[in-house]
Design a protein around this nucleic acid. Structure first.
Lengths: 206, 206
DNA sequence: GGAAACAATGAACACTGTTCACTAAGTTTG
DNA sequence: CAAACTTAGTGAACAGTGTTCATTGTTTCC
């Protein structure tokens, strides 16, 4: 049936139109500050139309989160060619930090906002998070297999420590809490990268 | 003039009434989910009355942040009797984590929400943050003076690394991002404390 | 050509933070 | 004591939010 194929295609195109605009606007002014009405106006449709393609704003948020995660994963994938797992680990951390600094609003809806996790906890898995974390953990495991990280025996624990370190610093920075250091923007960035490097050095010097 | 004294006192009492209720409700359901109308109803006043004591919701938020910070600082103060600066450092970290886990919504408005920092960056200092960070930094400095932390020469940098580590883990946990570890709540808590301990051990084993 | 399916929407609902003219009470003055 | 002034409290309104739903107009099917 060619007609229903076309309908399906048009439906996906419409969904994509909304999603693309939402992704752009969420990145620009943030999730909370972007209204359904504003998205509708930009794509020249009625606000109610959006609800024919997404059940609610949270659903839209989840879709944008997926887009953002895929962008991060594309960056992560560039590190597979790095042979030394320790170098690769640093590269992953660096990419994570750079992503967070370059896309603060997307970072927020991936790792900070409570909203997208509503239906998590109810048995539903957080697939995107799992995927990204798995990528990190794999490299950490490789480091441990080669005896490059000795402080830990469980790659999950070492990974979560690394994740916590970089997430902590970039999120403090993105919400202006590091202003107390009275540093220039570039100095702050350097501080974050240096902390990552220090942590890795200490972990590998076990 | 006794009357204007009484008026001043009554004004402060009214401010306190609003602030107390706001503090309670922000802790219970969070800042965003607490409406001015709900606070007004609870204290049996009109919503407009609140605006006679606080310029807007952000102003109220800042006042609650101060209350929350004072509570954290009271806990911090209990560590001054610990002689070993390294033990004291661990105690401070533990208190920080426990506070964040016990008061997630207050933690959020102290360290995560962007709103209260609007007028920061414009030259205004973030006094409460400075105060709490100063407390941490002092102990870190003492550790360095006694040669207990060798990886760093600047206590600011060592402090911000520690802060980043604990903030990262508790904030990931509080917004359910650590669900991917599929651990029990108590296991997650242990993991956070263990990470703090590991970091301190590594820093002191320089 | 008439019936069924469906995408798009205008209007409404229940909220939100916030403002402001107005009331009523308390305080100061003549 | 009464009149003038100050001030705390408020009802009503405004502009905005996410969301729902009956109605429209078009397309597809028989």
């Amino acid at each position: 049936m060619g007609i229903s194929d076309r309908k399906e295609r048009e439906r996906l195109e419409m969904r994509e139109l909304i999603l693309t605009e939402a992704t752009r606007m969420f990145a620009k002014v943030g999730y909370e500050e972007t209204s359904i009405r504003a998205i509708a106006k930009k794509i020249e449709y009625s606000p109610a139309t959006i609800y024919n393609y997404f059940t609610d704003k949270d659903d839209l948020l989840m879709a944008v989160q997926e887009v953002a995660f895929n962008r991060l994963l594309v960056e992560f994938a560039k590190t597979v060619s790095i042979e030394s797992p320790l170098d690769r680990l640093y590269a992953i951390g660096r990419i994570y930090v750079e992503f967070a600094l370059a896309n603060p609003e997307h970072y927020q809806l991936m790792f900070i906002l409570a909203a997208p996790m509503k239906f998590i906890d109810h048995g539903v898995k957080w697939e995107m998070g799992n995927h990204a974390f798995g990528f990190l953990r794999q490299t950490v495991q490789e480091c441990m297999d080669k005896g490059l990280i000795k402080h830990y025996s469980d790659s999950r624990l070492a990974s979560v420590m690394l994740w916590g370190q970089v997430h902590g610093l970039v999120s403090l920075h993105n919400c202006h809490r590091l202003s107390i250091l009275q540093m220039q923007e570039s100095e702050l960035h350097d501080t974050i990268f240096a902390s990552l490097q220090t942590l890795l050095r200490m972990l590998s010097a076990g």
